[in-house]
Design a binder for these strands. Structure first.
Lengths: 107, 107
DNA sequence: ATATGATATTGCAATATTACGATAATACTA
DNA sequence: TAGTATTATCGTAATATTGCAATATCATAT
């Protein structure tokens, strides 16, 4: 097949995987970092900055937004994408929790 | 196309994405958690535990091992997979560094 | 050396992801 | 309201990922 079995893994495991998937592409990492680096919510120039086509960037933005990491709001003609701090901390906690509860007991 | 442009993103961004990719599948998360939950390096029963076929598990183990998260050593007839603590902390740091340096400056 | 149990590799099919051009939708401006 | 700039969606092609059956490899034990 190739499709993931939906019943095999716990919800927590699926959550971790889903969050990781968002960061699993350098373009999305770059987009998130770029958005966070701007003092104002400049967004239209993400396309120029990252170097991918406008539709591709838009697609990546959807993925990031679906995970709740950013939120967009209209700012004149363009859209202002910003980090959702609350959700961002939440994801950091999910990762930290995973790393902290996963220790080595042997070797 | 569908292939990532190799020159667009920084090495750091690619590193983060590569690490995230390992955790971007619930089966791999489950495998890592299972390995870490055993006091001894029991490994052959990962297949029974996770519920995927032996080749599939082997494939996932390769991905995890390539990232350096686990290391395997022969233990009798079977192979003992254990968490590589040093590398594990390293990855946690990569993530934390990403999250901590990515703040919201607007909205 | 051979048999055995355990893990890895190969080959292949199904699905998902990534990317872009063309086009549509949206919000503002004149 | 028509025009313009900006972002989203659609359609499609290329590549990657996921999964398993069949087979090969490897380390031990006999």
């Amino acid at each position: 097949m190739g499709a993931s079995n939906l019943t095999l893994h716990s919800q927590k495991q699926k959550d971790i995987a889903a969050v990781a998937k968002v960061l699993a592409h350098p373009a999305r990492v770059a987009i998130i970092q770029y958005i966070s680096s701007q003092d104002a919510c400049i967004c239209g120039d993400i396309v120029d900055k990252i170097g991918l086509s406008q539709p591709t960037i838009s697609q990546h933005l959807q993925v990031i937004r679906s995970a709740g990491l950013i939120k967009g709001s209209f700012e004149g003609k363009s859209i202002c994408y910003c980090i959702d701090v609350v959700r961002f901390k939440e994801l950091q906690n999910i990762f930290n929790n995973f790393f902290n509860t996963t220790a080595a007991n042997c070797c």
